[in-house]
Simulated scan of single mutants.
Amino acid sequence: MQFKIRAATKGDCKEVSRMIMELAVYEKMPDQVKISHEELERDGFCQNPFFECLVAEVPEEHKSKEGLTIVGYALYFYTYSTWKGRTQYLEDLYVMPEFRGNGIGKGLLSKVAEVGKTKECVRLQLSVLNWNKPSLDFYAAKGAQDLTASEGWHFIRFDGQNLENLANEAPKDE
């Protein structure tokens, strides 16, 4: 199947927002999605964007049952390792179910890696739910290392009231 991978535009945010919800449903966490396409537009297409995004697009003749041509996305951002340097973090990689198995996911992942290499990133990191064997197998087949098993790293998060409490404990400037 023909498809192309391109940088997302502000106008793609509604489609990306739709696929974010589809991914959340697949991951059994649809109630966790609180972001709107307007926030995606604001945060991804400002002077200093918080993320970058690629979309997979198929020609009109291969559009989805619903008439959609944007059928996948990869959303990523940059972090920094004090041990290794520039790092890319892949937040989401998603392909609509009816388009899986056509190389679109591999194309998106490879394009993210290519973008990172042009920006001199030394690694690409991501998180996968422990029950998501298809994704774990997909990334492993491409050479990804599971750091949970090999190095024992845990993924830690502060949010909501706990983040608020932590911020409130910051030393005050005098």
Rank of each mutant, 00 (worst) to 15 (best):
L109N: 01
G85H: 13
A170F: 11
A74L: 07
V33T: 11
P59S: 06
L109D: 00
R18N: 08
V95H: 10
K84A: 08
D12P: 09
R123V: 00
G116H: 01
Q2S: 13
V112M: 02
P171S: 10
K34M: 06
A141S: 14
F50E: 06
P134I: 12
N48P: 00
G44W: 04
V55R: 15
Y76H: 12
G107I: 00
I70V: 15
T87F: 04
A144T: 02
M19Y: 04
E114Q: 08
V95L: 09
P134F: 11
V115T: 02
A141D: 12
K142C: 03
V58K: 07
T82D: 11
N132Q: 04
F50P: 00
G152P: 06
P171E: 09
F158E: 01
I70A: 04
K117I: 15
L129S: 04
D137A: 14
P97K: 10
P30N: 09
L40C: 03
N102G: 05
Q88N: 02
Q125V: 01
G152I: 10
C53K: 11
G116F: 02
L166E: 14
K34P: 00
N168E: 13
L109R: 00
P49Q: 04
Q145N: 08
F158V: 10
R123Q: 08
S64W: 05
V128K: 03
P59D: 02
N165T: 13
T118C: 00
T69Y: 00
A140S: 07
V33E: 15
W131V: 01
V55L: 14
N165I: 06
E120I: 00
L68S: 01
P30W: 05
A24G: 03
M1C: 03
G72T: 10
C46Q: 14
T9P: 04
L54F: 13
L163W: 15
L108G: 03
R42N: 13
E91W: 03
G103R: 08
E60N: 12
T87V: 12
F138C: 09
S64K: 08
L108D: 05
R86M: 09
M19K: 01
H37F: 14
V58C: 11
F158H: 14
Y78R: 03
A74R: 09
V55M: 15
T82M: 10
F138P: 06
G143Y: 11
A8K: 08
P134N: 06
A56R: 09
L147I: 15
K133R: 12
L166M: 15
Y76V: 08
E52N: 13
W131Y: 14
I5T: 06
K172A: 07
